[in-house]
């Protein structure tokens, strides 16, 4: 077996970073391969587009490559990397939100309505179990996620799907654990209110 879990992992990573800082391309590649799946998963879940996730992946690692020499181990490497990725995703989502502001309003027989409301009106399936798994519910949750602010969405994604602790999320977003906690509160509150009696 090539690698082992345990206390050596951190020092191995430190050695890899130091080697990559000195221009060792193989060490840099190993760093990329250790984290790039998570990076792509975060980007893909936040921006929900193959092309945009690919751009974010590349931009994030190019920034790491360019700035690695200035990395001074003030925080862990993965915190630094995730900070770069989430900042890129947040910028992207903010830009898209401005572009999409218009698109969320759709024309219906009863006039102009927000997309969120139209999803809410879809007829529910009688069986609660089937209802839970139904496509409409998934669609509704997708719409609710779209309705979160970029920062709420990032906190929710990192906590719910990546399993990161709120303290780490706060550090990644350059804020406090308390602020990350408040973001998560707001996100879950919106989701709960939006899901109403569906669950």
């Amino acid at each position: 077996m090539a690698g082992r879990l345990g206390r050596d992992t951190v020092s191995d990573e430190t050695e890899l970073i130091r080697a990559a800082q000195k221009g060792d391309d193989e060490a840099f590649e190993q760093l990329v391969y250790a984290y790039d799946q998570s990076v792509l998963r975060i980007a893909f879940n936040l921006v929900r587009s193959r092309e945009d996730a690919r751009d974010i992946y590349q931009e994030a690692f190019l920034r790491v490559h360019k700035n690695l020499r200035t990395f001074r181990f003030d925080c862990s490497f993965h915190t630094w990397l995730y900070r770069i990725v989430t900042n890129l995703c947040l910028d992207h989502m903010r830009k898209r939100k401005v572009r999409k502001e218009e698109d969320t309003v759709v024309e219906t027989e009863e006039g102009r309505k927000d997309r969120l409301e139209t999803v809410a009106e879809k007829e529910a399936v009688a069986d609660p179990q089937r209802r839970l798994l139904s496509l409409e519910l998934k669609e509704r949750m997708e719409a609710l996620l779209e309705g979160l602010t970029p920062r709420e969405r990032a906190v929710f994604q990192m906590r719910h799907h990546e399993g990161l602790r709120l303290r780490a999320i706060g550090e990644i977003l350059g804020t406090t654990e308390e602020a990350a906690k408040n973001c998560l509160f707001r996100a879950t509150q919106k989701m709960r209110a939006g899901l109403g009696d569906w669950i």
Partner: peptide, 20 residues
């Protein structure tokens, strides 16, 4: 709600990682 939210996770296609 937590269980239902699991359904919102999407995984990046495997081919995409190789491309990247």
């Amino acid at each position: 709600m937590h269980a239902a939210l699991e359904a919102t996770a999407v995984s990046a296609p495997a081919a995409l990682l190789s491309e990247c």
